[in-house]
Amino acid sequence: MSKPAFAIASALAFVGVLVASISHAGNERTIDIGDFVFAPSEIRVETGARIVFVNHDDTPHNVVDRNGAFRSKALDTGESFSIVFDKPGEITYFCGLHPQMTGKVIVTPRSDRQG
């Protein structure tokens, strides 16, 4: 099976987009998961912002990149998953358990207004 190779490729891609060390304090956005919806379903952030997904439903959800770059673990009630994108672009994602749940993150270049 090709799953190990896929996992390695996914991990490498994941490292490419996830650079937690450059997240800036106060530059954090939360996406709430409730009633089988990601809210907000579309979010615009600058590179380096931390995005936190929090599951408020009484059933698990996860967050899966449509292009396979990342896949969170299953989030039970109250659990969260955070990710930082360091490259501009559009990331579309869905819930791997309930694929009707979709969302988008638009990452724009960081403006260096803060030192």
């Binding site: 899966v64 449509r66 579309t92 869905f94 791997g96 694929p99 009707q100 979709t102």
Partner: peptide, 8 residues
């Protein structure tokens, strides 16, 4: 191997 189309 879901594709995010909303279905199985």
């Amino acid at each position: 191997r879901l594709e995010g189309t909303g279905l199985g």
